[in-house]
Structure formats: C-alpha cells, structure tokens
C-alpha cells in the first residue's frame, strides 16, 4: 500500500535541508511505520530528489517520525532554480512510497 493511505506528512525547509514528518492516522500503525519506513528506504524512494543523507528521528511520545533530508533543495530556497524552492510539495512525494 501507499504511505498516503495510512499516514500524513508536512515538509519544512532550512537552507538546503528539508524535513518530512510522517504521522500515522491510527497510532497503532506507528510500529509498522518504524519497521518499513527506514531512513534507507526513504533515501531510495527520493533518490532523484535528495542528494545527501537521510536521518530518521523517532518520537514514540507522539507516535510520529521525522526524516531530515540533506542536500534536497538545489542549494536552498534563496538561490535554487527549482519551481518549488522551499520543497513544500515533498511531503506528497514521501506519501507516494509503497510499503509492505
């Protein structure tokens, strides 16, 4: 299934780094996300977008994950040639990921 079906996400930017939260609609799905949506899996899914590493932070207190993706915005908001300079739409790219 697509992540879109069980989780929601918001993107934020700082310089050339984008962070993507990943929040299950049902808290019971948090463990499943922890198992399937590893940093390596996200890096592979976003390989055409994220040039640097992906670091995952776990927040069991609110049942959410946070992915910090380095070198993702073609240099950052202020000098990027991209359409979406902030990478605000990248949350939608994450939610396209298929998990098993």
């Amino acid at each position: 299934m697509k992540l879109f079906e069980i989780a929601h996400s918001r993107a934020g930017d700082k310089g050339d780094i984008v962070n993507l939260s990943l929040i299950p609609y049902e808290e019971k799905d948090y463990d499943k996300l922890c198992r399937s949506v590893t940093a390596a899996a996200v890096k592979n899914h976003l390989k055409d977008i994220v040039n640097g590493e992906v670091v995952r932070y776990e927040l069991p207190n609110i049942k959410a994950l946070n992915f910090v993706c380095y070198q993702s915005l073609l240099g950052g908001v202020t000098t990027s040639l991209a359409m979406d300079t902030h990478g605000k739409t990248l949350s939608s790219a994450l939610l396209e990921m298929e998990i098993h």
Partner: peptide, 8 residues
C-alpha cells in the same frame, strides 16, 4: 504536523 514543522 506543526510540532515537527522545520524541525531537525
């Protein structure tokens, strides 16, 4: 969603 917005 907002808690993790622009957070590393």
């Amino acid at each position: 969603e907002q808690l993790l917005y622009e957070v590393h």
